[in-house]
Write a protein that binds this DNA or RNA. Structure first.
Lengths: 225, 225, 225, 225
DNA sequence: GATGAATGAGAATTCATTCAT
DNA sequence: AATGAATGAATTCTCATTCAT
């Protein structure tokens, strides 16, 4: 999970060892943070879990906060790269959306510790610089935009949508599904929620008949900003 | 906001003063926590903001955590009572849903500090006993259930819905809308998001045509558990 | 136990009530101190036990330490008056000694809380001014001196004794017997230890034969200062 | 005094330093506690006296109480080992008793701070687990038992003795002699009290004549349990 | 690079004492 | 005299961070 894929598979032994230790610390940190929460965790606990000395951590990270920031930055980048890959595999908007959501759920299901820390920090917006948060938000929005715009061209997605709201609508629902899964102790299969969730995004909870009625009133009040 | 409505509107002067100080501390705490985060805030800062001595806080709260717990417990109760009231004012399911969402957004818009602390804790699930969190989740689910079931009877809401997912779908989207508003610095009007959001819940983002296509495939994969 | 016998049975109602409260606080304090130790006890606990307000305590006592000092001063005086009375009732030295020891044990057995606090403070020599402690030590020594001197005149007590040592010898043994009793939970009868203890003081643990041998060597090394 | 003899005389420099610091803290603590009393002393004062940082203390001791407990446990063990050694050096009961008492007094005279803290805690029975206290009491009793039983076989010590009482009799007297010495400011020679004290234990304060009279009455009331 | 002992600033909490009512 | 809410100084303990080895 935390493989620094882009780090270029260091060729020198020393470098390799170094990277190893970096990864070991990061993974240990996520485990400890997931179990106890960031504030309740101590640098010593992370060091013990990583089987390094306390001081060693400061050779790889500026300070305790930096562990979280580096994790978050790396993970965000990694996840969005995966998202892009997945979305590109499909042709239609609906299929793209489905792949996006499934990928999102699958990635978080694969590593529950990561999921816990990632979700907690996303909603904490303090330690993680708000720049990073904004950037992340934008990346998500860009993906959604692309998909929605494609759907609009295809005729499968409505044209009267406020993109900012659609992004929050999708992102919020997925996040909540993940949070519920975390709180449940990760007992059920998260990935299987992808399809029904997308179906809700597309069709909503209303009946077609009601939708027809609603559309008259609703469309009028639509935000278009 | 933080008026302990049920505390019995103390008639004696002494009692009144006591309640006053309790409220002053609670309000100060929420302000400080909102600005700096719970962990970054010190009891001394709260005391200074409330203009009381550090020790005074411990006359009203068991410890630092207890401030948050009492706030959360009280606020949750208060909010859900408001939700119930609002929902009952309307007759149709769609109207009920609209009132619920609008009320939710309005309440949080009214007090940004409260909103910040409340949202952060809801996604923190450490300090706040998970019992309280579960209970809160259930309350939300119950309200949604009622509305959805009414809609199903009316014929305005689909019958093939997995209630657990619908709850997360709605709750998640609303939460994300609130979070975005908080991060934006509370600059725009939150309440105005209610209508378009509900419209999305009802109709989804798909076009009726696409919905017709999708329903064939989608309905088959619907969770009904 | 804590009746201020010498206070003169106040004749005015107000005065009586006042004295009552003073006694109530003192008794409550001894109970609380005995159960938890002086430092572990709080003024509030004493107030609660005495059923008065915290502030009331400061109308009768200068501060927390003063409660202990007043108790100790009063109790010491009371005890030594009793000791004197008892000693005077007998004619022979041995009988006087027996009455003294029995009285000592009986008084402490009568009120275990008092015993606990008294013994602890006697060996603490910090809070209690060392003046008081010295005075107490002197009183004990004076009583012992009298008895021993009488015995020497009678011919029942040896003449080659260093009084300071005899006082410690007797006082130490009695104290230890009381301490053991306290630690045992006050389960057995303390008073019944008086007679065998005095018998030990008088005869020692050696056999007469050995004593004869020993006396030759022992007497030579006797302190006479 | 506080040398952790059994700690294995660390051979590595690092280890040595560690042990050094442990001892430095312990010695500083005893000094500070002796001067001000345990409760009146602060961890900071101990740290200052030991010339270490406050936090360093917590590397070697679980908490403030633990300093006292470790001191007491170690000292108790050390003292009783010395007692045993001394007792074994002599052949007759009287000589053994003399060596025991002299050793007891000598050890406490050697280190007045230790003596103050040790005596205070022995009579405090709160912080020090009562298990430890009971164990200590038992050790003392065992030594006394051995000596007394030997004396009974030799014919130098009376057979009609209640061992529990004899132990308190001896222990109490010695303790009181030490306490008096402490309160006097440690001015005179404590060791010199050993011989006259033992002489008192053996022969008592009565004259042989009186003893003869007394024995008739006394023996009858002797506890034999 | 790696270590881990040492540091000391900082935080929560307690509680004796005061004082307005 | 009595109250008890309020105070704030004082204390213990934690833990991120440093640095000599």
């Amino acid at each position: 999970m935390l493989t620094a894929g882009s780090a270029g598979e260091a060729t020198i032994a020393t470098k390799k060892k170094t990277t190893d230790k970096y990864r070991r610390i990061l993974e240990a940190a996520i485990k400890v943070f997931a179990e106890q929460g960031f504030h309740q965790s101590t640098v010593s606990q992370v060091a013990r879990e990583a089987e390094v000395a306390d001081g060693t951590i400061y050779l790889y990270f500026k300070n305790k906060d930096d562990i979280l920031v580096q994790f978050y930055r790396f993970k965000t980048k990694q996840i969005f790269e995966r998202f892009r890959e997945e979305v590109e595999k499909a042709d239609t908007a609906v299929e793209k959306l489905q792949r996006l959501i499934r990928c999102h759920l699958t990635e978080f299901q694969k590593d529950r510790n990561m999921a816990i820390v990632y979700q907690a920090e996303t909603h904490q917006n303090r330690r993680i610089g708000s720049d990073l948060l904004r950037e992340m938000s934008k990346m998500y929005r860009d993906i959604i935009s692309e998909v929605v715009e494609l759907g609009q061209e295809e005729g499968s997605i409505r044209r009267d949508l406020y993109m900012g709201l659609v992004k929050r609508f999708v992102n919020g629902a997925v996040d909540e599904v993940i949070n519920s899964w975390i709180h449940s102790g990760g007992k059920y299969d998260l990935e299987s929620m992808a399809e029904p969730l997308v179906e809700l995004f597309i069709n909503g909870i209303g009946t077609p008949a009601a939708a027809a009625d609603e559309s008259a009133a609703g469309a009028a009040s639509q935000m278009t900003a």
